[in-house]
């Protein structure tokens, strides 16, 4: 299975819009949404059936049994996360608790236990021919590389024969991004021509380079700031990164998405531009397989 990962560094640059177009163009048999904080891909990939759902557990969190609690205050005093309040009864703030287990350790009467905590949900949409794996973290749960790993595993086992997998990555450069990078054959970065977008893009390129993964760059909404777009192209040139195209700001794209469609489902400028980028990426991806 060849895996193409679409990343951005910053959120909101159009990763999902481009990923959904690629999925359509490739008629992909396997794809995944690794943006577990705010997944959007399921909104425009046209699945009408319900996904299979599975709870995802994070670190267990503390719970105090008030029947056993002797109000010694040890747990509250030793909690570094201000997660325990004493009034009216000793209680753990589920969202503040980081699951370290110190309160359980210090409690002299065994009134504190660590309980499994659902941190999110894994979802798998599948039929006879294709599989789409995605997940949603619950409110208050921190980012998790592990959930991203689970999403990718789920995709692979559901569509092990697929030749190509398209993965919509997580924003940022942290733990979930690193998790989405493992096992990937190529990265396409969707950059945005803003000052903040450029610095985020540079950081993600360095991260991908450390993995030794071939990285190509395209710019979305390039015409919202042509000067910055030129800077990005120049940067790619200097770094020897393949620059695969520019996508215009297009209100047609908004229209497609709001109809639950990808931009290549309708006749619009951005759809044509993304199709060109798609062909370039496929050439790069399959050229690489020769060595």
């Amino acid at each position: 299975m060849k895996q193409l990962l679409i990343l951005s560094g910053k959120g909101g640059t159009g990763k999902t819009t481009i990923a959904s177009a690629f999925i359509k163009l490739a008629d992909a048999k396997a794809y995944a949404d690794c943006d577990v904080d705010a997944p959007n891909l399921h909104l425009i990939t046209g699945w009408d059936r319900e996904p299979q759902k599975k709870d995802y557990y994070g670190l267990p969190k503390a719970k105090i049994n008030t029947d056993l609690c002797i109000r010694c205050d040890q747990c509250r005093q030793n909690c570094r996360f201000d997660a325990i309040s004493a009034e009216p009864d000793y209680k753990v703030d589920f969202f503040a608790c980081e699951g370290c287990g110190v309160c359980e350790y210090v409690c002299p009467v065994g009134a504190v236990g660590m309980e499994p905590a659902v941190a999110g949900e894994l979802m798998l949409y599948s039929d006879e021919v294709k599989a789409f794996s995605t997940a949603q973290l619950r409110m208050g749960s921190g980012t998790s590389g592990m959930l991203v790993t689970e999403v990718k595993k789920q995709m692979k086992s559901a569509a092990s024969d697929a030749k190509l997998a398209i993965i919509d990555g997580s924003p940022g450069i942290g733990c979930p991004v690193i998790a989405s990078l493992s096992g990937v054959d190529m990265v396409l970065i969707v950059a945005e021509p803003s000052i903040s977008g450029i610095s985020d893009m540079e950081r993600i390129i360095i991260t991908a380079a450390k993995f030794g993964i071939e990285t190509a760059v395209c710019i979305n909404k390039y015409d919202t700031n042509i000067k910055n777009s030129e800077k990005i192209e120049q940067f790619c040139d200097e770094q020897g990164l393949p620059f695969v195209g520019r996508v215009s700001f297009d209100s047609g794209a908004v229209k497609a998405i709001n109809n639950g469609q990808s931009i290549v489902d309708i006749d619009c400028k951005s759809g044509t531009e993304v199709t060109e980028i798609y062909h370039k990426i496929m050439n790069l991806l399959y050229d690489n397989s020769d060595d």
Partner: peptide, 12 residues
């Protein structure tokens, strides 16, 4: 040779 930055470290 190439050791990547890991989940929590030094990226960028």
């Amino acid at each position: 040779e190439e050791i990547h930055a890991g989940f929590h470290g030094h990226a960028g």
